[in-house]
């Protein structure tokens, strides 16, 4: 086994353990935002889209790079925006009005 693979494997296993540890009992109201927040984090795949776009050198690869960039950008931009909007609900006083439901996404 080469050194690079071993280092990557070690990082992978330890990150899995961190993932298991960091997630304790989540209150039911936070489960959907948490799912959405985790969904946004795997939007980091957008970094991979940059990497392959830099390597693309013909039409077939340009199309794949475009697809990867588009998919990943939807994931990461949409993911963080919708999570932020959901969590904006918790800022308001409990049992409060839902009057500005539609503008909940502002930062």
């Amino acid at each position: 086994m080469n050194e690079e693979l071993y280092a990557n494997l070690a990082i992978f296993v330890l990150s899995l353990l961190v993932g298991f540890e960091v997630m304790s009992k989540i209150p039911a109201t936070l489960q959907t935002p948490m799912m959405s927040g985790a969904n946004a984090i795997h939007g980091v795949v957008v970094v991979g889209a940059f990497v392959i776009a830099a390597e693309a050198d013909n039409m077939y690869f340009y199309i794949l790079a475009f697809l990867a960039a588009f998919f990943a950008a939807v994931n990461v931009a949409g993911g963080y925006t919708v999570t932020d909007r959901m969590l904006g609900m918790f800022d308001r006083p409990t049992g409060g009005s839902k009057k500005d439901d539609k503008s909940g996404g502002e930062k």
Partner: peptide
């Protein structure tokens, strides 16, 4: 990618 992916996978 490895870290964030594994984190989301486990969590």
């Amino acid at each position: 990618l490895i870290i964030a992916g594994a984190l989301v996978g486990a969590a």
